[in-house]
């Protein structure tokens, strides 16, 4: 390999690595917030989801620069294989291996999302859960591979990263976001049904209601109307979800 030992490569590797980690932390937090159904008039839910998607692409771009600069910097010997294959790097074998694992997992998550239209939702979702594994691995890679942790600002950056993702995670666990659950993330919408009964009807109950309304010919429905299109199929069973 050509002798490329410019300090700028080294600075670029460090800087883009930190930026990429930070972006992936925001991606994690916004993804968790999407699942928690966070959002309202000021910041709609679809906007958080869209932020999640677009920041992922930005994070992948920074990750690509991070990887390319670290490989072409001949001061450290990582090699193309070391980028993708764990423990293939002569330089800091363990910590680069964690980076390689995180990269492989993140690539799986990102590529499966790009193919989301063409794969089943359950498969996409199963792959997407891998991000809960990929992000901590990337974090450990960032903490232990570098020499920047001796600086206060780097410790602060890592702390902010961890705080963002953990707070979002606790929020998700605390608020059961599914509308069929006892709690929803949107109490204002759920309020009418919760005044009398703390538990909102589940999907099969709703469908039963819809059917009853369809069968009853005379009075116009007072409770939430169903799609007026009579050809709308009604599902009779509810598939269990993971």
């Amino acid at each position: 390999m050509i002798a490329l030992t410019s300090h700028y490569l080294w600075y670029s590797t460090r800087a883009t690595g930190i930026v990429s980690l930070f972006l992936f932390s925001i991606v994690m937090a916004s993804g968790i917030m999407t699942a928690t159904r966070v959002g309202g008039a000021a910041l709609p839910r679809f906007a958080i989801a869209e932020l999640h998607r677009r920041l992922t692409l930005l994070a992948v771009l920074f990750l690509a620069i991070h990887i390319v600069t670290s490989v072409i910097d001949s001061y450290v010997n990582i090699g193309i294989a070391g980028v993708f294959i764990p423990f293939a790097s002569p330089y800091k074998t363990l910590w680069v291996a964690l980076g390689a694992v995180a990269l492989d997992l993140m690539l799986a998550v990102t590529l499966s999302s790009m193919l989301r239209k063409h794969i089943s939702h359950d498969l996409w979702r199963a792959i997407h859960w891998i991000s809960y594994l990929a992000w901590p691995i990337a974090l450990i890679h960032a903490i232990f591979i570098g020499t920047d942790m001796r600086f206060g600002w780097m410790v602060a950056v890592i702390g902010v990263n961890i705080a963002m993702v953990f707070l979002a995670g606790i929020w998700r666990l605390w608020k059961n976001p599914h509308p069929d659950g006892a709690l929803t993330a949107i109490p204002d919408r759920a309020a009418p049904s919760r005044t009398t009964n703390n538990r909102t009807p589940n999907a099969s109950q709703r469908i039963a209601q819809q059917r009853a309304q369809q069968k009853a010919p005379s009075p116009p429905p007072t409770t939430p109307s169903l799609p007026s299109n009579p050809t709308t199929p009604i599902a009779t069973t509810r598939r269990p979800r993971p």
Binding site: R37, P44, R45, F46, I186, A203, I207, P227, T232, A235
Partner: peptide, 15 residues
């Protein structure tokens, strides 16, 4: 059309 089995009430469509 809404697939009532798949829908989980995220509400993005209404926004």
């Amino acid at each position: 059309r809404v697939d009532p089995v798949a829908c989980d009430g995220f509400g993005h469509c209404a926004e």
